[in-house]
Design a protein around this nucleic acid. Structure first.
Length: 116
DNA sequence: CCGGTGACTCTAT
DNA sequence: TATAGAGCCACCG
């Protein structure tokens, strides 16, 4: 199959697909996923998709998706406000003040890692 | 059908 | 450097 997502498919499905491709111990941003999918919908739709991600199976590692600044903007939407931070910490990602430390090094850009 | 809302991002002041 | 505003598109009432 092509690594390129089907533009005819649901945008949400693509978001979840890309999110599951995020390697262990890595993080990405809403904008990066949106850009990889064409940025047609915008980063906000990625966040909206993440809101429904907990309903998907297999589950989506939404804790690996943060905003452009590396801030855990979505932590409050998890089962517990600390779930996202603890999940990332468990993967070796250092979190300080709700922000991913060394974000640039841990940043996983699908447009760079997948697209070619 | 129309308006409000949102796990974002960029640009301007 | 920090703060404010606009743009963006899909879902819900």
């Amino acid at each position: 199959m092509s690594l390129l997502p089907d533009k005819n498919a649901d945008f949400f499905a693509n978001v979840w697909q890309v999110a599951r491709l995020i390697p262990y111990g890595r993080v990405t941003s809403y904008g990066a996923i949106a850009a990889y999918l064409g940025a047609k919908s915008g980063a906000r739709m990625v966040g909206w998709a993440m809101n429904l991600s907990h309903l998907q199976n297999p589950p989506v590692p939404a804790h690996r998706v943060v905003n452009r600044n590396g801030q855990l903007s979505g932590k409050m939407h998890f089962a517990t406000p600390t779930q996202m931070e603890e999940n990332l910490t468990a993967e070796g990602v250092q979190i300080h003040n709700n922000t991913v430390q060394n974000f640039e090094a841990l940043f996983w850009d699908p447009a760079t890692e997948l697209a070619l």
